[in-house]
């Protein structure tokens, strides 16, 4: 066992280990998983000098309280997060997007995310985790990944197998922006819905409901009427697909979604907007804006360039 570890004094609401996720398993029913907000995930790794796709600790709303034992190590938190670092004689108010050094006995208390859902904690080293299909990402539905596919629990330990000795301070000036307009491409069953239903989808406001997790985001608002059939023969799904079941309330598939589904697809969230979509808290208002495929491709290129730019500034 490694001598460097965190003791989990409080696990938090939905704390998991996440990396870039796993590929090529949809056909057997295993979703992609991986960090929900890919940009913040990668930035957290860069801030501590890790490979961009190293495993991190992902938390939602209230994060964990961790006590550290071992040699000095750096950590960084990304997202919009309130946290404290408890040192021997003082408490430091944490700041996102910059690295801090932890000494033996220090504590990180991730109090809450501010008007957002997910945050990332990366440490300058390698978390000692089990991999399944080349990923440690925890999928709590199928119990796949590190920690036997279960959320992180109180009282357990997180070991760090290799520490980077290079503890340079790193920092990035970045502020997460919120979006209200989610851009979508029409879905493959768009014509299943009444003209009024289609108009409602693109013109009215929806509210993110409390029934939202890593699998999906349920929306509430005006009902979208289906005039063809409220079921289709089950077929594959991808993240970002917006299905509308018989009750007329849209559901957006997120990273741990079921791999096949039988509800008509009214739209698909474009790749460029996914990281921001997942950060919308219950009660947030959203509107869907229609874009064409070519625009979506350009928007993603720009978004990806921006992410790479941010990473290269660190």
């Amino acid at each position: 066992m490694s001598k460097n570890y965190f003791e989990i004094k409080r696990a938090g609401i939905n704390t998991t280990f996440q990396d870039q996720g796993r590929n090529n398993l949809y056909h057997i029913g295993i979703p992609f998983s991986g960090a929900m907000d890919n940009r913040n995930f990668q930035i957290s790794n860069k801030l501590v000098g890790n490979d961009l796709n190293s495993p991190t600790i992902e938390f939602a709303y209230q994060g964990p309280l961790l006590k550290y034992f071992g040699d000095n190590i750096n950590f960084a938190i990304t997202g919009d997060v309130k946290f404290m670092v408890q040192k021997k004689n003082k408490v430091i108010e944490g700041k996102c997007y910059q690295s801090f050094t932890l000494e033996n006995g220090d504590e990180i208390d991730i109090v809450t995310t501010n008007k957002s859902v997910y945050g990332y904690l990366a440490v300058s080293g390698q978390l000692d985790l089990n991999y399944q299909w080349s990923s440690c990402s925890i999928n709590t539905k199928a119990n796949i990944g590190a920690n036997n596919g279960k959320k992180i629990e109180d009282g357990k330990k997180i070991y760090i197998s290799k520490i980077n000795k290079n503890l340079n301070d790193k920092k990035l000036n970045y502020i997460n922006t919120k979006i209200e307009n989610i851009r979508v491409i029409q879905g493959t069953n768009f014509d299943y819905f009444s003209d009024e239903g289609k108009n409602i989808f693109f013109e009215r406001e929806f509210t993110v409901s409390k029934l939202t997790d890593r699998m999906g985001m349920r929306l509430e608002g005006p009902k979208i009427e289906n005039i063809v059939d409220t079921n289709i023969k089950s077929e594959g799904l991808i993240k970002g697909v917006i299905q509308v079941p018989a009750d007329g309330n849209p559901i957006i598939m997120l990273s741990d979604h079921g791999t096949i589904g039988g509800y008509p697809k009214i739209g698909v969230v474009i790749s460029a907007d996914y990281d921001k979509l997942v950060q919308l808290t219950p009660g947030s208002k959203i509107k869907f804006k229609k874009v064409e495929l070519a625009d979506a491709e350009t928007l993603f290129k720009l978004y990806d360039l921006e992410t790479q730019n941010l990473i290269s500034q660190i």
Partner: peptide, 22 residues
């Protein structure tokens, strides 16, 4: 190509938009 999802009468092929496009 990231994933293939065969079903009764459809096949969905998802890909990495950084590497490929439609």
């Amino acid at each position: 190509i990231n994933n293939l999802t065969p079903s009764y009468n459809k096949l969905i092929i998802s890909f990495d938009l950084r590497k490929k496009n439609f």
